[in-house]
Simulated assay, not measured.
Amino acid sequence: MRYLILLLAFALPLASAAPRDDKTQALYDYLLGIWGNSTLAGQSDLTWRDSIDMAQRVHDDTGKYPALMGYDFMNYYDATEGDGRHQTEEAIAWHARGGLVSFHWHWRMENGKFYTKETPFRLPAADYRKIDQAIDRIALELKRLQDAGVPVLWRPLHEAAGGWFWWGTSREGYIALWRHMHERLTQTHGLRNLIWVWNGQDPAWYPGDDVVDITGYDVYDHAYAEAWQKTKQHGKPVALSETGHIPDPAEGPRWLWFLTWNDGAGPAGVTDPNNFWTGEHHNSNAHKRKVYNDPRVITLDRLPKF
């Protein structure tokens, strides 16, 4: 009987971290269906320079477009930069082409900064008024995406355990903030287009199964096996939520997706440490073509219609 109970438990679908509309549920079901068998190719947009088309740079080098593009709300709240404020429009346009959309948020607070060394804001927070003001601003963009029929792989409060962002200055404060954001976006604002992706980088910072759909890890040092072991224990699908080097699909764990970080140093083709896609500092052109043409890797042309 004990073994039968265990088998039934694994056969049951994963509990939802939030109510979803039909299109978002269809995407989540698809992700659960490919998990362990295929990997989505993903690319982060150059989110502070609207004129750069990272998806096109991927296509120019591989002949394929990524299945997933990653965007950022970094300059939508308390920012002085005029660039990087067309992420919502870019995401809607990418979705219209059949692509999947991920969003993270370099959350500026207090003096317009997000790095711990540059802002005095700390957790835990006794007063949530400033926090709610920021969340409410981003909720407007998420609502625009929902109205356009765009499901969002929502990855807020990333890399918290590293401590370099203000939301990583307290484990208890971070978990409380995650759960507060979840409640505010799903209940106060009624958003139904979010699939919650957690990558706090430390199992001790996990906010709970009821508020997480997918777990992820950001890897820039090739320590994939260690990252996998840390993240898989939660029993959720595991994504390589940011990376510099694109893993070989023939080796190591089967990530739900990989998201290569963006470029930051000039024109396409320039080899530079700040260019995570273009050039050959982090990935050779031959390796990019190999990965993007591997049958285990899902690119834009292989995605179903949601």
Score class of each variant (00 low, 15 high):
Q233R: 04
K230Q: 13
Q201H: 02
A227D: 06
V219L: 06
L191W: 10
D202P: 11
P207G: 13
R184S: 04
H182K: 11
R192I: 04
V197M: 09
A204N: 12
Q233L: 00
Q201K: 03
G190I: 09
G190E: 08
A225R: 15
I214W: 04
N193I: 08
G200W: 01
I214Y: 04
N199G: 02
E226K: 14
T188S: 11
A227I: 06
M181H: 08
D213W: 03
D218R: 01
V212Q: 03
L191M: 10
A225H: 13
Y206C: 07
T231P: 03
M181E: 12
K236C: 02
P237W: 06
Y224V: 03
K236M: 00
Q233V: 02
A225L: 14
R184F: 03
V211C: 15
T231A: 11
D210W: 10
L194W: 08
D221Q: 13
V211K: 13
D210L: 12
H182A: 09
Y217T: 02
G200L: 03
R184M: 06
E183Q: 15
G235H: 05
H234V: 01
Q233W: 00
R192E: 10
T231V: 02
A204M: 07
H180T: 00
W196N: 10
G235D: 03
V219Y: 03
L191Y: 11
W228K: 10
A223P: 08
E226L: 11
A227V: 06
V211P: 15
